Simulated scan of single mutants.
Amino acid sequence: MAYGQVRIALVDRVVDAGSRLARAGRVAVRLLTVTRMRPTDIYAALATARFLAAHELIGAAADAVEASGDPDIELIDLRTPMWFGAITLHNDEETQG
């Protein structure tokens, strides 16, 4: 490769990197201005997702118990995975009326 070709290839790479950076900046600005999500909104969405995952876990465990067909199986407590906050949910029969 001749010296002129190397310079043109280098300029082409710099221009390409600049256009990718500008594209990423446009997407970031669009997300910040169009969605208008504040930090409290993001926190609320994450907290809601955490409890929705726990609800889905309860439903899946109840379906598994029902599908087993064994009347002696009793669902007492569940523990969500660590990435959902490791919540332990207890089924207290005395408080249910």
Rank of each mutant, 00 (worst) to 15 (best):
I8T: 11
V6A: 11
A2Q: 07
D70E: 14
P39G: 11
V29P: 03
V11L: 13
A64V: 04
R20T: 06
G18R: 02
A61W: 02
D77K: 06
Q96V: 09
A28D: 05
V65D: 03
T48N: 12
D63F: 02
V29R: 14
N91V: 07
V15W: 03
D41P: 06
T33D: 08
D77M: 01
A67T: 03
V14R: 15
R36F: 10
A53C: 03
G59H: 03
T95F: 03
V34K: 07
Y3T: 15
I42N: 05
L46I: 13
G85N: 05
A67S: 08
L52K: 12
P81Q: 06
L46H: 10
Y3G: 09
A44L: 13
Y43F: 10
R38K: 11
T33K: 05
T88D: 06
A2D: 14
D63K: 10
F84K: 09
A2S: 13
R26S: 01
H90V: 03
I76P: 00
I73R: 12
H55E: 07
R79M: 01
A86W: 07
H90N: 06
Y3L: 14
V29M: 11
T35R: 12
H90Q: 08
G97E: 01
D41G: 15
H55T: 06
I87Q: 07
I58R: 14
V14M: 14
G69K: 03
G25F: 00
M37C: 13
L32M: 13
L10W: 13
L52N: 12
R20M: 07
L32E: 14
V15L: 10
T48C: 10
Q96D: 07
E74G: 01
A64C: 04
A47P: 01
I8Q: 11
I42L: 15
D92M: 04
G4C: 04
D72Q: 04
T33C: 06
L75S: 03
P71H: 07
A45D: 14
R26P: 00
A86G: 08
M37I: 10
A64W: 02
A22N: 05
T95V: 08
D77P: 00
G97P: 13
A54G: 05
A17Y: 02
T95E: 08
I73Q: 09
L57E: 04
P81K: 06
P71R: 07
R26H: 02
D41Q: 08
L52R: 14
Y43Q: 10
L46F: 14
A53E: 07
R36H: 15
E66R: 13
D16V: 03
G69S: 00
M82Q: 10
L46E: 14
A60P: 00
G97L: 05
I42V: 15
V11Q: 12
R23I: 07
E74Y: 05
Q96I: 09
V27M: 08
A53F: 03
V11Y: 11
V14D: 11
R20P: 03
R20H: 07
R36Y: 08
V29T: 13
Y3Q: 14
V65Y: 02
I73N: 05
I58G: 13
L78K: 05
I58M: 12
N91Y: 09
L57N: 05
G18P: 01
I76A: 04
D70L: 09
F84T: 10
T35I: 07
L78A: 02
S68W: 02
A22P: 00
A47L: 14
A49Y: 13
M82R: 10
A44E: 11
A24G: 04
R79C: 00
A60I: 04
A24P: 00
L32H: 12
I58N: 11
V15E: 11
A53D: 08
L57D: 03
